[in-house]
């Protein structure tokens, strides 16, 4: 099944394992062109048809779908079922060394101008691995919307959104601090994000 959905260059996981473990400021991977082209393009077209609702709190401002497990769209469900499959979770376990075979959380997000997610460590409940699949094209550094990783209260890594880039990081209390920088222009930052949970 992995062959069908994932770019072949990522099927060998030995080098990914080392990169994940040694990444700074906390274990993570940034995997460009992660999903097969046809699959991700189809998924993007169908995801855009989902209902995104505005969500706001002290910590964030963005548009979010319901959990994609409840989608009525068979392409969206296919994507969800792949991420939630034991085969993909075993693949992640081989890369990260983290066992996260519980039900995944998975929602679509749109950040438009003025939207943001302030720094937090994601540690809540049974979350083990956080993931973000970027689905936006043409974002530049000056546009905002980067995923920023913190170390000692400073941003030490900024990941500019780029299409079909899959990011995973280990959720660790008091360590995996990250934010989505405010979007500064009139562009849509589209992504799918969530967590792989412990059983």
């Amino acid at each position: 099944m992995l062959n069908k959905y994932i770019n072949k260059k990522y099927l060998s996981f030995e080098s990914l394992k080392s990169k994940f473990i040694h990444a700074k400021p906390f274990s993570h991977l940034v995997l460009k062109d992660f999903f097969s082209k046809n699959f991700i393009n189809n998924f993007l077209n169908e995801l855009k048809k989902e209902n995104f609702e505005h969500k706001e709190s002290d910590l964030f401002s963005f548009m979010q779908t319901h959990d994609l497990s409840s989608s009525n769209n068979h392409i969206v469900i296919e994507f969800y079922q792949f991420l939630n499959s034991n085969e993909f979770k075993e693949y992640l376990q081989k890369i990260t060394g983290i066992s996260a075979f519980g039900k995944i959380d998975c929602s679509g997000f749109i950040y438009t101008s003025k939207d943001y997610l302030l720094p937090h460590d994601d540690k809540l409940g049974s979350r083990k691995i956080a993931y973000v699949l970027n689905l936006s094209r043409d974002f530049l550094k000056r546009d905002g919307g980067s995923l920023d990783f913190f170390s000692k209260n400073k941003t030490v890594k900024s990941i500019i959104p780029s299409f079909n880039t899959f990011i995973i990081f280990k959720v660790t209390i008091g360590k995996s601090y990250h934010q989505v920088n405010e979007v500064l222009i009139d562009k849509k930052r589209l992504s799918v994000a969530g967590w792989f949970n412990d059983k």
Partner: peptide, 9 residues
Amino acid sequence: SFVKYVNHL
């Protein structure tokens, strides 16, 4: 209480 994030406007 909190003070809402000040955006670029």
